[in-house]
């Protein structure tokens, strides 16, 4: 299951969050070679790991096996600060638009359904929280995977090479149909999310009800 970690329940997940920063270092710095993210303490974290960041972590008996994060686009965020050149027109910024980043899965889970669970998780969370779309910087070879998962993806600019890999800024619509498709593809349950503790809605929490199973 995918755990939702916000400012409100962060204290319940201190060790999982610490673990996730080490795994991010392992994957993004060591495996992917994003040397700009290297830090001497062996953790990968940046200016978009703040109190406002929402983490979605795939946990297996306390072990972090994958995850990603969401960050408000009303704040300076990666697309506006680091990758504005990937956007042809205006960088989207609105209370109901979040930036999605740092999608990772530990090596031994990459052939399984963890991908689909994490993709369902972002759609489900955004539906429940009133987020209408998310922006992301993606490697282009992932785009057909998003299509396969039923995600509606709009390019924000032409792809450009980043560290030798064609990369593009995109906006992904949050849709019940996309969640239904990815659930069907992965044979996933109605809810893939675990929520502990209380947290205020990110935008509003009145528009979406889980389908009955």
């Amino acid at each position: 299951m995918i755990h939702v970690i916000t400012a409100g329940n962060r204290s319940l997940y201190a060790s999982e969050l610490a673990q996730h920063h080490l795994i991010r270092h392992e994957i993004f710095v060591k495996e992917r070679g994003w040397s700009a993210l290297d830090r001497p303490d062996g953790r990968e974290l940046d200016g978009y790991d703040t109190d406002e960041t929402i983490y979605l972590l795939a946990l297996d008996e306390g072990r972090v096996v994958g995850g990603h994060r969401l960050f408000p686009t009303t704040r300076p965020h990666m697309l506006s600060e680091v990758f504005p050149a990937l956007v042809a027109q205006k960088v989207p910024s609105a209370p109901d638009v979040y930036e999605w980043s740092r999608f990772f899965i530990v090596r031994e889970r990459r052939s399984g359904r963890t991908y689909l669970r994490l993709m369902a998780a972002v759609q489900q969370l955004c539906l429940e929280e009133g987020i209408s779309s998310i922006t992301a910087v993606i490697e282009m070879w992932w785009l057909p995977r998003f299509h396969e998962a039923g995600f509606v993806v709009h390019p924000l600019g032409l792809p450009q090479p980043v560290e030798g890999v064609a990369t593009a800024a995109v906006m992904i619509e949050i849709r019940e149909e996309s969640l239904a498709r990815v659930r069907q593809l992965g044979d996933l349950p109605a809810s893939v999310l675990v929520r502990r503790g209380d947290s205020p809605p990110l935008v509003r929490r009145d528009g979406y009800r889980l389908p009955v199973q």
């Binding site: 282009m140 785009l143 057909p144 299509h147 390019p155 032409l158 792809p159 450009q160 064609a166 593009a168």
Partner: peptide, 17 residues
Amino acid sequence: SPQAKAAVHLMAIYACN
């Protein structure tokens, strides 16, 4: 040109989908 190839890359993925 890099821009032309980028445009074809993007269009190809959507045409295929």
